[in-house]
Write a protein that binds this DNA or RNA. Sequence first.
RNA 1: GCCCCUGUGGCGGAAUUGGUAGACGCGCCUGACUCAAAAUCAGGUGGUGGAAACAUCGUGCUGGUUCGAGUCCGGCCAGGGGCACCA
Length: 882
Amino acid sequence: MSIERYNARAAESRWHRVWDERGVFATRNDDPRPKYYVLEMFPYPSGRIHMGHVRNYAMGDVVARYKRARGFNVLHPMGWDAFGMPAENAAMANKVHPRAWTYENIATMRAQLKSMGLSLDWSREIATCDPAYYKHQQRMFLDFLAAGLVERKHSRVNWDPVDQTVLANEQVIDGRGWRSGALVEQRELFQWFLKITNYSQDLLGALERLDRWPEKVRLMQKNWIGRSDGLLIRFALDPKTAPSNEKELKELEAFTTRPDTLFGAKFMAIAPTHPLALAAGSTNGAVAEFIGECWHRGTAQQIIETAEKRGIDTGIRAIHPFDPNWRLPVYVANFILMDYGTGAIFGCPAHDQRDLDFVNKYGLGNTPVVCPPDQDPKSFVITDTAYDGPGRMINSRFLDGMTIEEAKEEVARRLENESLGNHPVAQRQVNFRLRDWGISRQRYWGCPIPIIHCTNCGIVPVPEKDLPVTLPEDVTFDRPGNPLDHHPTWKHVKCPRCGRQADRETDTMDTFVDSSWYFARFTDPWIATAPTERRAVDGWLPVDQYIGGIEHAILHLLYSRFFTRAMKATGHVGLEEPFAGLFTQGMVVHETYRTADGGWVTPAEVKVETVGNARQASLIATGAPVAIGAIEKMSKSKRNTVDPDDIIGSFGADTARWFMLSDSPPERDVIWTEEGVQGAWRFVQRLWRLVNEAAAFAAAAPASRPGAFSDVALGLRKASHGALARVSEDIEKLRFNRCVAHIYEFTNVLQAALADAGATPAPAAAPDLAWAVHEAAEILVQLFHPMMPHLAEECWAALGHRSLLAEQGWPAVESDLLLENTITLPVQVNGKKRADVTVARDAGNVDIEAAVLALDAVRRALDGKAPKKVIVVPQRIVNVVA
RNA sequence: GCCCCUGUGGCGGAAUUGGUAGACGCGCCUGACUCAAAAUCAGGUGGUGGAAACAUCGUGCUGGUUCGAGUCCGGCCAGGGGCACCA
């Protein structure tokens, strides 16, 4: 019998039409079945999809199709993160409007995604640059403003000189802009902030309950929020040295996490912008000069990080809280940050490396106050390495002998009960590293901030009836900066309050705002009167399974968690955590290739051959040798990309999807190889042949299940249900690489069973085998359906079905088939495997022991000696100890 | 500097969470079919010794716990990631 090769291209577009016509993936909000919301991070419409998208969306689609088969009402939507800089860059380079560029890309990428055969509900598609979307975002901004979750501050910000815009702290990587790569500068500007710090503790504490998030992401967020517990101590200033008699300058507040080291204090240091520093500068020329230097030197982030630790004595003296006669010099120092804690510290050089470097430079000395357990307190000294480990207190009066923890507690207790003026000297305090989220961007292609600045009324929100504030179409990009600023008419409006001439806010929102709530909008993207329809959003959220790249571990995922809280506070959703389950998939990487002159060449231009274990590459065009370089993330600069269109065009979407899911565990990087794609393609053909052969073999199979099965038929059934159980479990746990392995294994079993059976069709004397083969083929097709849906539909039809597999339920495991009557246990002697023993599943330990000791191999290994002990681990292993 | 993760054949990776190390795939080798190639099918494939049965070594290095360690504990080494003047 000859079976025609599977024509992926023809079959795939045929099934796309069928799925479309029947609307099988449209999801209804009023469906009574239990809901399951699976979401992949929506793409930025940069031009074309890349292999990373293929991997991400293939994974999500496996989950969506599996959960649908399991009887859930599945929401699996797609949209576009459509605002952002590249559209403006394209506008500047190609004289094309950002909107036109963006929508053209969306059209291209939508067609590409459709060619993948993803089970998406396209009726819910949204684009964040659509006024129908961002009008709700503006409405929520105003709601947040009214709720006190928005603030406008004159503040020092990260300025990207290339993109000419402000960046959030999260967007500065190694001192450079996350998109432009330019060295970031510091500037003072009026900025809009979302008050994420209102939720610092909540965002931190709730991480513990996100038990279906990767540990790694939770840890990264925890470190980013950066809680530290300590003591806020008020130091009195020696009146003779204080720069002014103003009340607030007569004392100095410092935050510390090490109050136990208070007796090791040698100095105090304040930030150059601290009010006390400014006051000191006004009377002390040298101090003023130093402060000026700090300002001038510290513009670029990079310089700040590498700058030497320097300071200057202000002449001010602080009084030690436990000793009225102990004076500490107050320095202005360039390494103290005004926006963390109080902008002031006390320095304990023996136990803080930074403080130690500082005192060594200025000759202030050090006194160790914590002695490590393995050191003699009498001889323990610190020279140029600070000690921050555990130990007992020394040189610390009433603290001596205590542990660090005891000493912290004792200091806090005493200072809380002492007072300075009318207040306690100290109070316990928690500080966070997390800063408020600056969302102002000096760009055109973003969501306008719905605010009007009126010289008369100040800051006036745009009235709700005037929303959305839409972007003007007639803009030019022929000069740097924000086109909205240069627009002749858009920015000039009448003040909605007093009617006088006023100006619009020309800043637009950070694009991370757009992506902080799109998952909520998907639950009802049609409602025009509000951002969300409460019944829909509360019914669908949280997202049950969110899938995306690890690069969003902090930015997008932390902002979304905050935004959901803010939406709850303003009545737009009913919950706090948007994503119940998170999975971060690895990247798609590829070998790099360079010619002799050092130029990068694409995989398509290179032929790779394997000779023995060595791989050699050459240019297809000329045969010139090519050096095989490191395996790296696919990127245009290294030219090591593979276009999904090319792969889908020649092998079909199923091959691409299958390869993306095989081999590497999904959280790790996967290496794209030509051999791997070929292997996936061969497997597609092999499945097609095998299912057709099975269908022919089982053509005369009885319609209902036979009452009895031969050993061969029973063996096949056990394999079928074993594979079903294993694949189901691994899909649930997103271990797609193991699913793939199990499917290969099961395919091998079915193929061998058909080969052993010989004649096709099945002999009339073996109806049970025909039935078991048919069952096996059906289960096989259903198992690979979530990964290769088109081939699966084609095979399902070949097995005689007229229904759609996409609408089919998941097969049920017959669990009694998973239990064997006999089991084979490995037998070890002194921990080394020597034999196997096959016993009844419920055999007693005594019987097993006897059977084991009778084995030749065990006797030989024992060499006549009597065993000391026999350990039988039920259902696992037997170990004989000699 | 601080925090975290990873290390298994030629390669990607499995290993029931302390119980047969190397499943499955890729690659490679041998054979069948073919005028030939592709495709397909059959067999082999961690190292060493052996014709074989088998023996022996083997999960980055090193020490330990255990009847038994890829898995647990201590100390190193290498690679990757996050944060970074955070008091």
